[in-house]
Design a protein around this nucleic acid. Structure first.
Lengths: 203, 203
DNA sequence: GATAAAATTGAACAGTTGTTTAAAAAAGTT
DNA sequence: AACTTTTTTAAACAACTGTTCAATTTTATC
């Protein structure tokens, strides 16, 4: 008995896709299971049938997001073959790629840091960003006297310079400071600008 | 008849204070009116008695927050007496002061950009940050060929460098990268570092 | 094609949540 | 003190929300 799952993934995947959209747009608390069902155009009960609860479904979506946001970067930051500037350049490019495809990610994640019952924390715990080889390199550089500021400043700057524009995007576009399509152009400029700026900060 | 309000402000103010705490910590959707009543230690009905609805109460709290975050800065950015570096230095210091006192502000505001029904937008519309004298100065500098990048880059960098640490703070402290109390020290360092970094970017 | 398993549906449940109401208590006014 | 207004309270309402259940339909297996 029990034919393993994986027969008709279409419904399950549709729910997941809908959940991604609604959770990302409205956050966990403001999202109703009925919203997801409507977005997926399936019966309400199916959400609980495929995923056990709203919370479990959310965890899946959140895990995906964190995975995308953290794992690749962790690999780069932990590549002992790469120097600091190269690590930063690659990370910046990866993030800008990712965020151009998923512009709502930062808002979504930031939202859950407050709203959620530390769901974010649970996953971010595996977070190797902050105990990475890059951190080690920066601390070493600091001790050699070649870096004048606390390594954390550098980390905060990388993240801030990459992520903030996506957080501010709605406001920028609303105030017509950035016209349609221009945002993408600006972000592409930042691929080379941010590493340049950081080089200035390191020196 | 109708003795004007303002008699016993204590209850009203207690509700408001409680609302600030709970809304800021959990966001609009995740906050229950009963949470606020409990936090204020008053009867549930009084919330609707003094403020007409949860939404109206939230608007008050949000308006306060946006006011604090935008108005002072707008004044600085629009002071035609001040040069670019001086504007930036003052803005950075004001923001760091403000955010050290209200560390949850950024998370709160960012949260409402997605979750809220554009409540943030309504207020931020008065936003003179992005049509300020500083913007004008930067565009002028750009046209004179003394600024190589788009002025928006500069704006995004200022905000990003100041605000991001406060967004990342929970993660930084959780991962023990920043010890207790050290965060404040780092932010105070950034008062001088950020203007310095930005000078480098402008040149 | 008969049988079993899995998927889907509509309805209902139980708990929550924002809001209202009517009555009581407190404060203010004459 | 009598009376009015304002404030506070407890209870209830009505709508909403996550979840479950039983019945039905669809799909897979022999």
């Amino acid at each position: 008995m029990a034919v393993k799952k994986e027969q008709d993934a279409s419904t399950e995947e549709r729910i997941l896709a809908a959940a991604r959209i609604v959770f990302t747009r409205k956050g966990f608390a403001a999202t109703k299971v009925r919203d997801i069902a409507a977005e997926a155009d399936i019966n309400l009960s199916l959400v609980n049938y495929y995923f056990r609860s709203k919370e479990k479904l959310f965890e899946v979506v959140m895990a995906e997001a964190v995975q995308k946001l953290v794992f690749e970067i962790a690999t780069i930051f932990n590549d002992t073959q790469l120097g600091i500037p190269e690590k930063i350049t690659r990370a910046v490019n990866y993030y800008i790629d990712l965020l151009l495809e998923n512009p709502d990610f930062p808002l979504f994640l930031v939202n859950e840091i407050i709203t959620g019952d530390d769901m974010f924390t649970r996953f971010a715990q595996q977070n190797t960003l902050f105990q990475s080889d890059l951190i080690r390199q920066l601390f070493a550089m600091k001790e050699e006297g070649k870096l004048s500021v606390h390594p954390v400043h550098v980390m905060m700057n990388v993240i801030g310079l990459v992520v903030m524009p996506f957080l501010a995007r709605p406001i920028l576009e609303r105030n017509a400071l950035v016209k349609d399509g221009e945002f993408v152009k600006l972000m592409n400029e930042r691929r080379t600008l941010i590493p340049l700026w950081l080089k200035g900060m390191l020196g």
